[in-house]
Design a binder for these strands. Structure first.
Lengths: 389, 389
DNA sequence: GGGGATTCGTCCGTCAACCGAACTAAATGG
DNA sequence: CCATTTAGTTCGGTTGACGGACGAATCCCC
């Protein structure tokens, strides 16, 4: 076997193009693949033949429809084969962990959410995560050797170089490299860790409310406030991987001291616990985030006011960012992202504080994946990193 | 790397790789090109042969040094040929225009700066620009048919879709598509227009103070305040092309009304005319930007205070942006970018208001191209758009 | 029911692009 | 003066993609 560098690379590039097109568009015929990639039908046929032989692609038994309802021989559809085995996605919040197990076509097989005091002790949280993964594997009937990759997010910036949580944000995780810790506990080769808002952005961008939109800002409003920024269709992580710290924009010079050390950070005003605390005295029942969302939908004046204020504060910070980035869409995620009043507040501030042209080019929409955006992003990341092509 | 497609496309991709390597590294031998691209010496030889035949590359007469001072046949160096003809770069400011003529290897042949009240009447300014270009062509001995492309920047956001200046920013340019207007006046096919800060960023990134740095923010502080944002090595223009409006971040809720319609924009505090106005009463001599920079270098207390305040205001706005983008370097440009006090002010605010990790990963440096950054970026853009490969 | 028309997938011959080996060219050094 | 080293070229061979031709499978229309 002679290594013919460039030609061989060309062939693998073409193979990759086919796989990525199949991934984006779903099952399709060889002729459609040829049209989609610009390759000839001949070439597509031989490449698909190789991909079938290597197990990356399967020829489906169902025949497709003839071309555009007209006549002609119906095509044989080919589809990406789901590789054997499973991956795990883990969403670590401040007060919960959510673990999902999926096959390698992103179909979720099992999922579990649990309240855990993550902030206090990172090691203990990771212990619990490892237990849940093990349980889910067992109840789904998979052996540990069938777990190919793990994607995880943590609610804190992650320094790319040290693979650690940034200073000050999550004290219980100091000097705890999450990927390595999890790899040690579960003996899985591929463990990828990223920031929660980043993975939420990835999920909403690839299959949620911002599908096909090149420049988006995903804002996660939950226990904290964070942003995942997709520019030119690619997640922007920054020089050291800690981009997206929208929650620590200063909005009040004399405001509360934030866990990051500054004063009056956006996060001190609009984080979910803070809002509940603010509302609770006026209500007889114990308030939860779900209950607040329900009251908001019912039109409760107090809730609307508080969530509207929060939205306006977020929108104020977003306006500055949008002036600089001119994104096409803002996706509001996190437990409070679907609140109508909050969304209205964001829109109000953007209209008021952003440049008119910038605001006009901008859509503000709630996320479509809800609480599960982060874990779905983690699964997607795990699958992409476990790909063998 | 290798784009999918036919064999022919593979060849052109390889040709492009050779040209881009030659562009980046300067003259080199075929053997070095083979090592640099991973192609075989055979392939490089034939490709270079084609490029020589087509006039894109020349074989220099000087022989290179034998490899690493050792023995061996000395290589024949090949270099990018400078295509015939010239290009023009035009920097349109609020109160001046700067026009440069260069050959197509970016060597400036002639340059002229002139005070023009650009804001008042866009058409008149473009008339004058066309005159200057014509004059420079004549005095340099080139005919108009030898002018291959024009790059121009204007001090306002440019909507990509309408190719017009954004609403409100530059009233005298409303409904005046700059590229088309200039094309009409000078009968040049290739006319590219972009925002001033964008082209400054391009220049400082490709050949100035941020060479080789992937994520930078170029801040231009002159008659206005604007930013050019390079992320992942590529200029970010945003969904409609109007990214970078850092000057219209609101820094004072009750501040002066800005030309953009909002109140208390950064630009109302730190634009150069505003600072001169602020300083003038305390000085007997008439102040210019150059004089203020000189006073700053001499340690004049008043100037240092005012420029320091301006820098802190800019840094305050940059801190929020850096929290979200985590860039590696900030380049301060524009007429006041080289001021030491201003730079110190920016650093002070960044340290205070940005996340500690973000600030630690960040360098703040003055631009290396000074007033000429924009026009050099315009030339570079014109050259790249006039390339025939 | 049968004969185009149309589209799909494959086979085959051809051409394009790259590579390795061998060869010549031009220097250095003992 | 000859061995050594590196550069560039020539030549034969392999790989990859393509276009045209062909059978297959369906629809449409008579």
């Amino acid at each position: 076997m002679v290594s013919h560098g460039s030609l061989e690379r060309l062939r693998t590039a073409n193979r990759r193009a086919l796989v990525s097109l199949l991934g984006a568009e779903g099952p399709m015929s060889r002729a459609d693949l040829a049209r989609g990639t610009g390759l000839s039908r001949t070439t597509v046929s031989t490449l698909i033949g190789e991909l079938i032989a290597s197990g990356h692609v399967t020829e489906t038994t169902v025949r497709g429809r003839p071309h555009k309802g007209g006549s002609g021989r119906p095509p044989l559809l080919v589809a990406l084969a789901t590789p054997p085995g499973v991956v795990a996605g883990i969403d670590v919040g401040h007060r919960h962990v959510r673990v999902a197990l999926s096959d390698r076509s992103a179909a979720v097989l099992a999922e579990q959410v649990e309240s855990v005091d993550v902030d206090a002790d990172g090691g203990a949280a990771l212990d619990r995560v490892a237990e849940i993964v093990t349980t889910l594997l067992a109840t789904s009937g998979f052996g540990r050797e069938e777990l190919h990759a793990i994607g995880m997010c943590v609610p804190a910036p992650l320094d790319r170089r040290s693979a650690r949580v940034g200073t000050g944000i999550l004290p219980g995780w100091r000097d705890l490299p999450p990927a390595e810790e999890l790899r040690r506990r579960l003996d899985v080769r591929v463990v990828v860790v990223d920031n929660d808002a980043n993975l939420g952005a990835l999920a909403e961008h690839s299959r949620g409310a911002a599908k096909g939109v090149a420049d988006i800002i995903y804002v996660k409003i939950a226990s904290g406030v964070g942003a995942g920024i997709v520019l030119g269709g690619r997640l922007h992580r920054g020089a050291t991987g800690i981009a997206g710290e929208l929650g620590h924009v200063q909005v009040d010079e004399d405001g509360q001291v934030c866990r990051c050390g500054n004063r009056g950070c956006l996060e001190t005003l609009v984080a979910a616990p803070r809002l509940l605390e603010l509302l609770q005295p006026a209500y007889d029942e114990p308030l939860t985030e779900e209950r607040v969302l329900a009251l908001d939908a019912e039109g409760d004046a107090g809730v609307r006011r508080v969530l509207g204020d929060a939205g306006r504060a977020v929108g104020r910070a977003l306006a500055d960012l949008c002036n600089s980035l001119n994104p096409e869409r803002i996706v509001l995620g996190g437990s409070l992202g679907t609140s109508g009043s909050l969304g209205e507040g964001v829109r109000t501030s953007l209209t008021r504080f952003a440049q008119p042209d910038t605001a006009a080019a901008l859509q503000v929409v709630p996320g479509r994946l809800g609480d599960r955006a982060e874990v779905l992003g983690a699964l997607a990341l795990a699958i992409s990193r476990s790909a063998t092509l």
